[in-house]
Design a protein around this nucleic acid. Structure first.
Lengths: 254, 254
DNA sequence: GGGCGGCCTTGATCGAGATCAAACAGCCGC
DNA sequence: GCGGCTGTTTGATCTCGATCAAGGCCGCCC
């Protein structure tokens, strides 16, 4: 059981003027999200946001905060507004595997089941828009279009999980690390155009990357050093990555 | 490119009396399925089956037949009625990973996308109920309950994919093989009660199992030999498995 | 029957990545 | 400045599973 780095402080009060926002008729989710994601807050559309505006809560979490625990009841769903959330599973003896990463504006939470099958943890500092479980389920019951959009995200997550199974099962350590960097480069793009961004901060520690790739942190470190020595990337201050040659990085993905 | 063992013969004519069935008002899907799966044919319910009965086709495929190819357009969806379908992904150099197994009465096919992201291949002899793509999408458009049921299966597949990522990323060869046997034991149960069955035929060759587990076929063979030597299982005729000690098998899953 | 092709098993050796170990950099509170 | 803490790098060694290789079993076709 590793100690939690950042306490799971549910700092709703960290929103400077949350009360004001909630007393107005402007939906919170929409306000903070619209600018960033082209008028749609993750899966929720303006009218749905309006319907939920009185009961959603913008919540900030520090890196390391546990947002949901394996085999624990789910009380609320959320939209990731900023930052990265990692989904992990752990074997009894402590071996851990990251089974998914969620970037803004992903929806967070397993629908239609009492308990979470994964642990959700803030990988970086994150902002979430929380929606109580029952409220979202009620909204979904008479809003098939909403369920349809959640279906789309679920299918996309399934595609991504299956892509990752190839990486886990069949790629070498060097290919795994290259694949990880390429994944981050294509997912961190704030404009979400699918274009790879060539300049970013890693949202995960070496240990987390290892848990994502099914490697040890030493192997991850060595492979990153090799990519640096080969002038495919440059790393500054442990976390910041410059992709010097995106084509060569892509080639190394296997 | 390995040669296909069984030709992908789309033997619709293999149904002895298919024409008769289609000329009657009895829905094909329902007839063959109801007995086996308690009145529901996979995701389709009696009234939906009735609506589709004129355009569905019962199709038989031999083991090895390719049902859908990576990056190829999807023309029809299907329900697996009998047998096991493997979903695979292949890297350019030929390395292959099985990213999913579908058992009766699973729904088969990626909704809402033009091209398949995986190759679907009959692992054993299979029976499928095919539904043309457009017909199912039309039915789904004004039938939210149907999409809801497909959502349930998609979420279950996502859970299973994530479970398997732990196996691929963090388990030893011995644990992987034990996990595979346990998976098959719990999924092949025709009554689908979730109970592990202790007497079954492997639907996959050693090579396929290796592709599922991210191992080589030699390692799979050695681990099976070890389980046999340790009297956890007995194997007769290469394919048939008797689980002698289910608790001990489960213990070895890691 | 005999030969052939799939599929499986077992043995010998090799190497990629794990493990063990040491040291270093950045950061914070004192 | 200094010690302690977290996260990272690098080196040395070991081990599990891959690779290379040979042989066995079984069904099928000539």
């Amino acid at each position: 059981m590793p100690a939690k780095q950042g306490a799971a402080q549910e700092t709703e009060s960290a929103m400077t003027d949350r009360k004001d926002i909630h007393n107005s008729d402007v939906p919170v989710l929409c306000q903070s999200c619209e600018a960033r994601h082209k008028g749609m807050c993750g899966v929720l559309q303006p009218d749905e946001l309006m319907a939920l505006s009185k009961i959603t809560r913008m919540v900030k979490h520090d890196a390391g905060a546990e947002l949901a625990a394996e085999a624990q009841p789910i009380e609320s769903y959320a939209n990731v507004m900023r930052g990265v959330v990692k989904l992990t599973k752990t074997l009894e003896d402590g071996r851990q595997q990251i089974v998914g990463l969620q970037f803004a504006p992903d929806f967070l939470g397993r629908l239609y089941t009492k308990e979470s099958a994964v642990t959700a943890e803030a990988a970086s500092d994150v902002d979430l828009c929380r929606v109580p479980r029952t409220a979202l389920e009620r909204l979904m019951a008479d809003n098939p279009a909403l369920e349809h959009r959640l279906m789309q995200q679920t299918l996309r997550e399934l595609d991504e999980a299956r892509d990752w199974m190839v990486t886990l099962g069949r790629k070498t350590a060097a290919e795994k690390v290259a694949s990880f960097l390429y994944l981050i480069a294509t997912h961190l793009d704030p404009s979400h155009e699918g274009e790879a961004v060539r300049h970013f901060d890693l949202p995960l520690t070496r240990g987390d990357i290892a848990d994502f790739l099914g490697l040890t942190l030493e192997t991850v470190s060595r492979q990153l050093s090799k990519l640096r020595a080969d002038k495919v990337i440059a790393i500054t201050g442990n976390r910041h990555v410059d992709v010097i040659d995106m084509a060569r990085l892509k080639n190394r993905c296997g």
